[in-house]
């Protein structure tokens, strides 16, 4: 089949193309880090160099002093963590009902949840803003968290996975006298770990990067999330590239770390949900 002599030329072409792709993909990251540790003298030099002669780590500290970046970081962790946990709870409960229980209107309700995947979040932006504003939740954690505590995509992802759990297992537990709460807690959730992990990473990554909602529902610097802080930084120091790059590095690190550690789970979740996207 694969006779090496015939295919080797192609294989080299593919190899070089893939390598070029990786370089183009990763170069901006390299440049981000390189600029973040450049002294000003090196930043505005032409042609620019990737290599830094006199690395300067001050910029990372400056980010925390010129704006409340530490607070923003803590806010982001708090908000993202809370959303992730809430999505796991809310979506897994709904998914359990859809996958393991019989009730009237199950299919219709599931379709309605699915249809929500087609509603762009910008459509509900203004009404949601009005709801949160009327509740007095501008500049509050609950205002940042609750609108994202439920996810149609997460429900769909978990329901598909829960459906693969053998029915006999659930029926056997029923015969053993387990209530639905016990089955949910002690059978379905432990068996659903891979899907829950995928959802957790998915939720973490997308919420850490969320921008538009915190942009319109936070006004005070101490309630800003990392992404907002970063855009504020740009507004105030728009030519201080080392500072902006240092901020970008810091804002990017947590998701990259989570993704690299959990990339298998993340990608399996992404591909399993061959239906509905981010």
């Amino acid at each position: 089949m694969a006779r090496p002599t015939r295919h080797s030329a192609w294989d080299w072409v593919i190899f070089i193309a893939l390598l070029a792709g990786v370089i183009i993909t990763c170069a901006p990251f390299a440049w981000m880090i390189s600029t973040a540790i450049k002294p000003n003298a090196e930043v505005f030099r032409f042609p620019p160099t990737l290599w830094v002669e006199a690395p300067l780590w001050d910029n990372f500290l400056r980010v925390f002093t010129v704006i409340p970046f530490g607070r923003a970081f803590a806010n982001s962790l708090m908000v993202t963590g809370a959303i992730t946990i809430l999505q796991l709870i809310v979506c897994s409960m709904a998914a359990y009902a859809f996958a393991c229980l019989q009730f009237r209107g199950r299919e219709v309700l599931f379709l309605i949840y699915l249809a929500a995947l087609m509603v762009p979040s910008q459509v509900t932006l203004i009404p949601n803003f009005l709801v949160v504003r009327n509740l007095g939740w501008i500049d509050t954690y609950q205002g940042l968290i609750l609108p994202f505590a439920f996810s149609s995509f997460g429900t769909f992802l978990l329901r598909q996975y829960f459906k693969t759990i053998p029915r006999e297992l659930i029926e056997a537990s029923r015969l053993d006298g387990c209530s639905h709460w016990r089955i949910y807690l002690f059978i379905v959730l432990p068996l659903g770990k891979p899907a829950l992990a995928a959802l957790a990473i998915f939720a973490f990554v997308s919420q850490w990067n969320n921008f538009l909602w915190p942009l319109i529902t936070t006004t005070k610097p101490e309630m800003q999330t990392v992404q907002i802080a970063l855009s504020t930084l740009q507004g105030q120091f728009n030519t201080d590239w080392p500072l902006l790059m240092a901020g970008s590095v810091l804002a990017t690190m947590p998701v990259l770390a989570v993704f690299i550690l959990g990339n298998k789970a993340f990608i399996s979740g992404l591909t399993a949900g061959s239906f509905g996207g981010k």
Binding site: F29, Q227, L230, W241, G247, S248, L256
Partner: peptide, 30 residues
């Protein structure tokens, strides 16, 4: 390779936009 290609997807768009603004800088950009 798959992780490398996927890194930009999980990167915050704000950070990506900032670094590219710098790369596209007319006078000093790469």
């Amino acid at each position: 390779l798959r992780i490398a290609y996927f890194l930009p997807v999980v990167t915050s768009t704000i950070a990506a936009a900032l670094v590219w603004s710098w790369l596209f800088n007319t006078n000093f950009g790469v």
